[in-house]
Design a protein around this nucleic acid. Structure first.
Lengths: 238, 238
DNA sequence: CCAAAAGTGTTGGCAGTACACCCATGA
DNA sequence: TCATGGGTGTACTGCCAACACTTTTGG
């Protein structure tokens, strides 16, 4: 007995976020890559990258794979967003989509490829997408902005070390509002999420800034018992 | 091309929470119903209620259906928890489980049926379950305790009207710690989540307590763009 | 009257905000 | 030297925990 639910197929899609300078004012904003559909339904429309789940592939691994296939990048952060499975979300077919959201480093995203069928869009002005993908993007953006305030994810947009100004720029770009540098500094420092290094960043026409690193000892309180353990790490004792 | 991912089947399971008095000290604690498996794998083990997803059934509808089948109750609250889909979570078969969690009224749960193959367990001392269901229960409990602090879900354990003491008892039972009645009152009242009624509850050997009702006007900020609206959930008649 | 829970008042600590101010560098 | 961002100090405000106190019922 296969217990295979008749007619229900499983797909995995991923909302991939990166920060890029806006073409207008040059300020950093949130962007995401979309792929153009090349068949029905919704032929020609933009959609989230993804595809059917392979039988021998974990959910997060599938998300990481399609992410790499579309952007040639590896995610700094990857987390499940939601499972969308309404009966009417795909015309003529029953598809349950397990959607992940990912963060990639902004400097890497700058050089990411764009082709005829892969393009980056400003997250706050995406076109009309295929399926229910507009709702999915909206929800992912909401989660990103929400989670930024109580988690450590901002560093996923940056490299190994960074100044507090760079970290603040990330917050400002995601939350779309300016933050007081003094208060931001104290907030981050007292949270224990970051740890100062010996090095400074020079080169600006101003006092050099201390470089910080992420505090790997400090636990991320965000996901509870599921932890932040990432793609293809299906192991968990206890 | 059917796009049917070969060998991947979809199931929906539900973690159902209710408050019941502890058999030891009589204090209210969190309980959940489990069903005994009657075939391999894990024959004889306790497991979460659930079953394969029907092709013409929305995810939340499937969760509500199995909930009704096992407890004869309708949920006051129902929300998706997570999709579990590791390749090794079910021996010999690839199953992706979309798991929901639900809250049912405590007074209804008191009279819920128990049979040979359906039994209620204290949520903090469940036995060793089938599949990865121990992890799922642990995660659902974490979400419940977490969400209680920034959402409106506590009232789902109660009837239409309730005293602030009753609401506080719910919080104390879920969070497993006593709360200051005075501060709890102000916190709840200032949140605008509840609204006082004209009626009082008499009968105790003490001053009567005002009955409150849930404020349906106030939005629940918990789920963002997805809202608390549950796809084709057979409730929410008010 | 007393016991017990309903409900109000008051205080102190702590976190977030606004903003003034000094420091170190490149040009 | 000046402009610019790095970094510190400080006062104000609002929320929350603690707890003393008053109110209203049943017995």
């Amino acid at each position: 007995m296969t217990a295979q639910a008749a007619g229900v197929s499983v797909a995995v899609s991923t909302v991939i976020f990166a920060l890029r300078p806006s073409p207008h004012d040059g300020r950093m904003t949130v962007w995401l890559p979309l792929v153009r559909r090349i068949r029905e339904p919704f032929d020609g429309r933009w959609a989230l990258p993804g595809g059917p789940l392979e039988a021998d592939e974990d959910l997060a691994a599938s998300a990481a794979r399609t992410l790499a296939e579309t952007t040639l990048l590896t995610p700094q952060y990857l987390e499940q967003l939601y499972a969308f499975g309404n009966t009417d979300r795909s015309p003529g077919e029953r598809v349950v989509s397990i959607v992940y959201w990912a963060l990639v480093r902004s400097d890497e995203a700058d050089v990411a490829v764009e082709t005829e069928n892969v393009r980056w869009f400003d997250a706050d002005s995406v076109p009309e997408l295929a399926f229910d993908h507009n709702l999915i993007v909206e929800y992912a953006l909401w989660r990103l902005r929400n989670k930024l305030e109580y988690s450590h994810i901002a560093s996923a947009f940056l490299g190994d070390t960074f100044t507090l100004s760079e970290l603040r720029e990330v917050h400002e770009a995601v939350l779309q509002k300016p933050l007081d540098p003094a208060n931001f500094r104290r907030q981050i420092e007292s949270s224990g999420q970051v740890v100062p290094t010996e090095h400074l960043k020079t080169g600006g026409r101003h006092r050099p800034a201390r470089l910080y690193r992420y505090n790997t000892a400090e636990p991320d309180p965000s996901n509870g018992p599921l932890g932040t353990r990432q793609p293809s790490a299906p192991k968990d004792a206890s």
